[in-house]
Amino acid sequence: TYTYKLTDEEASRRAEDEWRNRGYDVRVRNNNGTWEVEVR
Rank of each mutant, 00 (worst) to 15 (best):
E38A: 06
D17W: 14
L6R: 02
N30R: 09
A15N: 03
G23H: 03
D8G: 07
R22E: 05
Y24Q: 02
Y2P: 04
R29L: 12
R14E: 08
V37R: 00
E36V: 12
R27N: 12
A15R: 04
R29E: 08
K5H: 13
R14S: 07
E9S: 05
V39W: 02
A11L: 07
V28M: 05
Y24A: 04
D8A: 04
L6S: 09
E36P: 00
A11K: 06
N32M: 08
E38D: 06
G33L: 02
N30W: 14
T7R: 13
T7G: 13
Y2E: 06
Y24W: 06
R40C: 08
W35F: 07
N30K: 10
R13Y: 06
R20L: 08
T34S: 10
Y4L: 12
R27E: 14
N32P: 01
W35D: 01
N32D: 10
E9R: 07
V37W: 01
D8M: 03
Y2V: 13
R14M: 09
W19Q: 01
A15I: 15
Y4V: 08
S12L: 11
E10S: 10
G33C: 02
G33K: 02
D17F: 13
G33S: 03
D17V: 15
D25W: 11
R27I: 15
G33N: 05
A15H: 11
R27Y: 13
R14Q: 11
S12K: 05
S12C: 14
Y24I: 03
R20N: 05
E36I: 14
R20D: 02
R40S: 14
R14P: 02
E38I: 14
D25Y: 09
T1Q: 09
L6A: 10
R20Y: 04
W35Y: 07
G23P: 00
E16W: 09
V26L: 00
T7S: 12
V39I: 11
T1G: 10
D25H: 12
R13W: 06
Y24G: 01
R22K: 12
T1W: 15
D25R: 07
V39E: 01
V28P: 00
R20E: 04
V26I: 04
E18Y: 15
N21A: 14
V37Q: 00
E38H: 08
D17P: 00
E36C: 07
R22W: 06
T7D: 14
R40V: 11
E16I: 13
E36H: 06
V37A: 02
A11S: 12
V28F: 03
R20I: 07
W19I: 02
R29Y: 14
R27P: 04
V28W: 03
E16N: 04
W19R: 00
R29W: 13
E10K: 08
S12R: 05
V39T: 01
T7Y: 15
R14A: 10
K5N: 10
N31V: 14
E38Q: 09
E10C: 15
T1K: 10
T7E: 14
S12A: 15
R13G: 04
T34M: 13
N21Y: 07
A11T: 09
V28S: 05
V39L: 06
Y24N: 02
N30F: 15
R14I: 10
T1V: 14
Y4Q: 05
R40P: 03
W35V: 01
R13P: 01
W19F: 08
N31Q: 08
R13H: 08
T1H: 12
E9L: 09
R29F: 13
T34A: 09
Y24F: 12
K5E: 10
N32K: 08
A11Y: 05
E9I: 07
S12P: 02
R40G: 08
E38M: 09
V26H: 01
W19D: 01
Y4E: 05
T1L: 11
V28T: 06
D8C: 08
V28N: 03
Y2T: 11
E10A: 13
N31P: 03
T34Y: 13
G33D: 05
W35P: 01
E38Y: 08
Y24V: 04
A11N: 06
N31K: 09
R22M: 12
E18H: 14
E36T: 10
V37I: 13
E10P: 07
D25S: 10
D17I: 15
R14G: 05
N32R: 06
D17Q: 15
W35S: 00
V37F: 04
R40F: 14
A11H: 07
R22I: 05
A15Q: 06
D8T: 13
E38R: 05
E10M: 11
N31Y: 10
G23L: 00
L6E: 06
V39D: 01
E18A: 11
T34K: 07
N32Q: 08
V39F: 03
S12Q: 04
V28K: 03
L6N: 06
S12T: 12
S12V: 15
A11E: 12
N30A: 08
G33H: 03
R27T: 15
T3Y: 11
E10V: 09
D8S: 14
R13L: 09
R40H: 09
Y4A: 03
W19Y: 06
V37N: 00
D8K: 03
E36A: 03
Y4R: 00
E36F: 13
V26G: 00
T34C: 05
E18I: 13
T3L: 12
D17Y: 13
T34D: 07
R29P: 03
N21G: 11
G23C: 11
R40M: 12
E38F: 07
L6V: 15
R20V: 06
K5M: 13
L6K: 03
T3A: 05
G33Y: 02
K5T: 14
G23A: 00
V28Q: 01
